[in-house]
Design a protein around this nucleic acid. Structure first.
Lengths: 194, 194
DNA sequence: TGACGTTGTGTACATTCGTACAGTACATTT
DNA sequence: AAATGTACTGTACGAATGTACACAACGTCA
């Protein structure tokens, strides 16, 4: 199997995607790769599809396959006795958004103030990724609306009442009498060091 | 200007992209949004294109515009009362990738194993964003190569010697005699909750 | 009230899309 | 040397694409 060139071609396609965030039509692929026939693209795509690099969208358009964004995480690590990360785990640097956010339209980013979730690894200044929905499970970290304020706590239960538990022993467990509303559930967190 | 619905529509398009990594054809957009005419899509797209959310690829296909990946970021947060972020309100937006990664070509992602940086809010299973360079400042969290292994620690100095300080009192400060090599500096961190 | 701008419908149409099928060029195998 | 397999060319074609134009429904504003 001589797919030597196929990876070179794939690279060009990936570059195209990086620039446009979409894949070209068959004709444009042909142009991009220097083919003079669209048909060459058809078979090229078929080959890459088998390997999981490309796929078809519901409307028969070209779309990136599951392996399209693969890239090595720590590549130039030859010197170290360090297990080269398996391809399955790898994240393309372009895809952090994707990795963290599954439902973009229902997702909000909130900057955290205060130390009440410190022991959960959520610090003052961190950003949490919140999926907006009214219901959560016990144990989830939730953004709750309490006295017209947003609060970030772990959802717990005492008897038949829901409570809000901070992850910092200097803060008290909140036991609101009138109940409270759940704004959303924390699905991710990130932090930048300056 | 009544683009109230347009953002609702945009949300559905964003969700489609999140799932397929490509945008649908006009006909499929119509289907997706409940339009009965492709033409409604044409004008809808024109509106969003003006605002920078959508754009055209070289082959006249639909592609994400520069603002397509923006997320809402709510400002004053967890302890302070603030209005539910609505689309029309003043909001700052950003792409997570852009925010966390400044030099893509020199940046790698490393999955953290172990608890040695727990008190710095870097847990087992978190991913750190590492900018590869050989020099760092005291106080930086660095990825060091020590005995052919990667280690994640805070860079410190004792006298004229550099040391590696864990952020967990159960772990000892590392004082390598022969010095060590710095692989890179941690510039960010993120975590996903399942 | 009536003019106007906006949003979506319905039909028509040239262009382009992706595929089918036949054929060429060239290396590898037996 | 003949047979086989792979990569690509070239032409043809039905289906789908995106656009144009005319028109209906609706809210807003003067």
């Amino acid at each position: 199997m001589g797919q030597d060139k196929d990876f070179e071609y794939l690279g060009k396609i990936q570059d195209y995607f990086a620039e446009h965030k979409t894949l070209p039509t068959f004709s444009h692929v042909a142009q991009l790769l220097g083919f003079k026939s669209k048909n060459a693209v058809t078979s090229f795509v078929a080959r890459l599809k088998l390997q999981g690099y490309l796929d078809y969208a519901p409307d028969k358009r070209l779309k990136p396959g599951r392996r399209f964004f693969e890239r090595i995480i720590a590549e130039s690590t030859v010197q170290a006795g360090f297990a080269t990360p398996a391809y399955g785990d790898s994240l393309d640097t372009m895809g952090i958004d994707d990795y963290l956010i599954e439902k973009p339209s229902q997702t909000v980013l909130i900057t955290v103030r205060g130390e009440s979730m410190k022991d959960a690894g959520i610090f003052n200044g961190d950003t949490v990724i919140v999926e907006k929905r009214a219901f959560a499970n016990v144990g989830d970290i939730v953004v709750a609306i309490l006295n017209n304020e947003f609060t970030l706590k772990t959802l717990g239960k005492e008897g038949d009442k829901f409570v809000l538990i901070p992850a910092n022993k200097d803060f008290p467990v909140l036991r609101p009498q009138d109940g409270f509303e759940i704004f959303g559930v924390v699905v991710g967190q990130f932090r930048k060091y300056d």
